[in-house]
Design a protein around this nucleic acid. Structure first.
Lengths: 342, 342
DNA sequence: CTGAAAGCGCTTACAG
DNA sequence: CTGAAAGCGCTTACAG
């Protein structure tokens, strides 16, 4: 069969669409259409084409396709960080689903910075990605405009766009934080602090959920907002715990904006011999793998990041396939996981 | 300036090389060469070309370049897993360096399986990546052949290829494990177990380092090899710790093949009220961020994964630039970090 | 050192 | 429903 494959000076030796067409005795156009599953092709011809492609081991050249169609088989996934495991799991799920759909995943790290995000989107757009997966809804105006004018399908992950300006898959960060705060109140805690790092948009939404819930029952105290712009880490959680305990001795519960910080707090409590939850309760957010193993096991919010990554990729897949998804904004919810730390 | 940009029916509106050439009053070939930094171009002409490109905001079309040159601006990075943070840090460092070199990073997950790796390499090669970054040295014969015959530059990460069949950047897993075992012996521990999960090539090399060191002083006992093929996790570490303590009460130190397992062990010791290192010592491997925060802080091996990712990308960058790196195999070493758990 | 020609392998746009 | 022509925007290979 190799003899059917053209081999001019600059060719690669791989079977081309022209080879397939020749073997199937149709024009390259018909072969192209048949291989892309166009319904306008006669069934018998399509059959011959796919058979020929199979025999020749034909694989379309992505570069040629991209050049002619102005669309690649790459999807760019932009996440804030790879240090936070939340985003790693998001990326992993998205990558898996995209691969099954026949797309390659390009990664970009925004470092939680809308300006860097804009820069990355600009770069990616030059490569004409088939689609874009972004994290959160805090894109700059320029970013949105770039995407819109490029007509590149785009889905955002982790938050819900209530105004439905974009396709989004996520859950309500505010409601999740409110649910945790409500749980702490239900446990009888009176002075509930909120400790957060990084202070990205989602963290601030969690702060809002905590504020709203406590305000509603007259328990909000702005002095119990413990905010630090530094990146989140186990070590920072330990430090925050120590500071809060020292500065606000009457605080009886701390709601950390994520599990990493809460892990640090639990470990430091162990080190200082402070009883959790007896003396002070500790809650987290995300439910990372370690949280159930902590001493004591951590009460937290289970966030559906794997489902978010998968669903977002699925929605993007249908958009890239020129189909409008039924729901522009998918709310995947969250789950309060009560363990022994509260 | 927009008026200089060609706009036929199918064009994108972006400035093309032909536009640049026209403005610079040279041929497209000279423009092409000048923009790629070819030294064979007259300095004055090159200057005119770059000026024209700047004025027009010219950006080369990656698809066209790939189609004509059979080489894309993508580098595929294949790692075993995104669950193990070691590889995430490796990926992050490589991605960062590649981006600075003007390349985009495509990710592929092998799930520790040479067959899946082969499949991924095959797929990636169809897209004609500019280069390949692989993890470890346990590629299948077919994988090596595919890469070789495609003439794609390739660098492996994490291990050192002593036989120099490939370009590699890493360190000796065996020696690192030997150093830890030696440390435990030096602390006076007599019955040192080795507990491992996943059992990939690198884990087995660590096992070997432990075996060799103990055999050398007549202390090797095969019954103290606690091996489990399951993926590594904090939870599994806790379970292994419990099992070893129950089954082998005279074991006075456990060397876990990675920090995740060791974290689980330390947490479980806390839960069971077993004193570490008094009753039994615990050591890990990798030095993840949490290790210093554990109770007690974990003794472990600091592995240079960030440096490995960066250096490997750097070596690949020079290979893609047709330069041979000075050293085919870079040994980046490791560091024994002694804390309170041993 | 520079350039005219041809080609990479597809798809768009238009006819029929 | 099918196809001949042209084109996407670069680079290779060859001349000069």
């Amino acid at each position: 069969m190799k003899s059917n494959v053209s081999r001019s000076g600059r060719a690669t030796g791989r079977a081309t669409l022209a080879d397939v067409a020749r073997v199937a005795a149709v024009s390259p156009m018909t072969a192209s259409r048949a291989l892309r599953g166009a319904s306008t092709v006669d069934a018998a011809l399509a059959e011959r084409v796919t058979a020929a492609a199979r025999t020749l081991g034909y694989v379309p050249d992505p570069a040629a396709r991209a050049l002619a169609s102005h669309r690649s088989s790459h999807v760019a996934v932009l996440i804030p960080s790879l240090t936070n495991r939340l985003f790693v799991e998001l990326l992993e799920a998205a990558q898996h689903t995209l691969r099954q759909g026949g797309f390659q995943t390009l990664i970009g790290i925004t470092h939680y910075d809308p300006v860097e995000e804009e820069q990355l989107v600009r770069e990616q757009l030059l490569h004409r990605p088939a689609g874009l997966l972004l994290t959160g809804l805090d894109q700059s105006k320029a970013t949105r405009k770039l995407i819109k004018s490029s007509e590149t399908p785009c889905v955002t992950m982790m938050e819900i766009d209530k105004h439905a300006q974009a396709f989004s898959v996520g859950f309500s960060q505010t409601e999740a934080a409110a649910a945790m705060t409500q749980h702490l109140l239900g446990r009888g805690h009176k002075r509930i602090a909120f400790a957060a790092a990084q202070l990205d948009a989602r963290t601030l939404q969690r702060l809002q959920g905590w504020r709203d819930t406590l305000s509603a029952c007259g328990r909000h105290d702005a002095r119990l907002e413990w905010l630090d712009q530094a990146p989140s880490s186990v070590e920072l959680g330990a430090r925050m715990f120590e500071q809060i305990v020292a500065a606000k001795p009457r605080v009886d519960a701390i709601f950390f904006c994520n599990d990493d910080l809460a892990h640090g707090a639990l470990l430091h409590a162990l080190r200082m011999g402070i009883e959790v939850p007896g003396r002070i309760a500790v809650a987290g957010f995300n439910d990372l793998a370690e949280s159930a193993q902590m001493v004591p096991p951590l009460t937290t919010i289970l966030t559906p990041r794997t489902e978010v990554g998968r669903e977002a990729a699925q929605v993007l897949l249908s958009l890239m396939n020129k189909q409008r998804p039924a729901i522009a904004n998918r709310d995947l919810g969250f789950e309060l996981v009560v363990r022994q730390s509260t």
